[in-house]
Nucleic acid binder design. Structure first.
Lengths: 122, 122
DNA sequence: CTTCCTGCTACATTAGGTGTAGCAGATCGT
DNA sequence: ACGATCTGCTACACCTAATGTAGCAGGAAG
């Protein structure tokens, strides 16, 4: 079943692009695939390895979906991002930068919760 | 199993924040939950309804995970985003804007492929 | 004491992902 | 021409994750 903007995503009836996008990205491996290809195009097998070895079944399914959504191409050697895919990749880079800061504050919070379990420390 | 930055995400051995983030966001409903709460805090039942009715089992699991990651709170009435959660929500808003443009170019591409199947159509 | 919210938990069913094996096609060196 | 070695897959049995419905304990209001 090819998900597309204009067609309802799971859990919606409108085909709002953001809903379709959240639905697609919320499947396992999709984000990881975009992330890995963002670091450079590569073959199916290499991509599988970079992702930590998902089953070829599911990897292929994801690649098909992403190609239908115009985010990936499958030309030269192996797979790569299209223009739209690169744009999406930019957002992932932004998320990566954010996540570093997030991890630091989260670590700080935990450390505090451990060091000073005085009030309501569980 | 509580995923956290510092602890390896599925498919990795490093606990790189971006990997943990991609892993968590790549589970069904996580992105949708953040999206819906980004539009305002609400109760468990209301949230479930907004998301299109995922099973309470999985909704509750996701809410727990997101709370442990410091993205959600569960205080006043129902659930809401923390500061970190709101920051992440900003990125989703950016994605939403992007997705509108993406949908238009994608629709254009398809229309062309249908109207002019002259060379290599299909 | 009843009613109606709240946030859940239980449990059987089904959809989704895993892991291993292996195959057909293209490209290489001999 | 033949084997070796890539490529991108497909098949299939197995297991985990999500679904859908039911229902329960706790708190607030009448």
């Amino acid at each position: 079943m090819p998900k597309r903007p204009g067609q309802p995503a799971r859990g919606t009836r409108t085909g709002r692009p953001i809903m379709v996008l959240l639905d697609v990205l919320g499947q396992r491996w999709t984000l990881r695939i975009l992330w890995e290809l963002q670091q450079g195009r590569c073959t199916f097998r290499e991509l599988r390895s970079r992702c930590g070895g998902p089953s070829p079944t599911i990897l292929n399914r994801r690649l098909k979906e992403l190609r239908e959504l115009g985010l990936l191409d499958h030309d030269a050697p192996g797979y790569g991002l299209t223009e739209a895919g690169r744009e999406l990749g930019e957002h992932l880079l932004a998320l990566s930068a954010w996540s570093e800061r997030w991890a630091r504050t989260l670590a700080g919070r935990n450390a505090r919760a451990v060091r000073a379990p005085v009030s309501g420390g569980r």
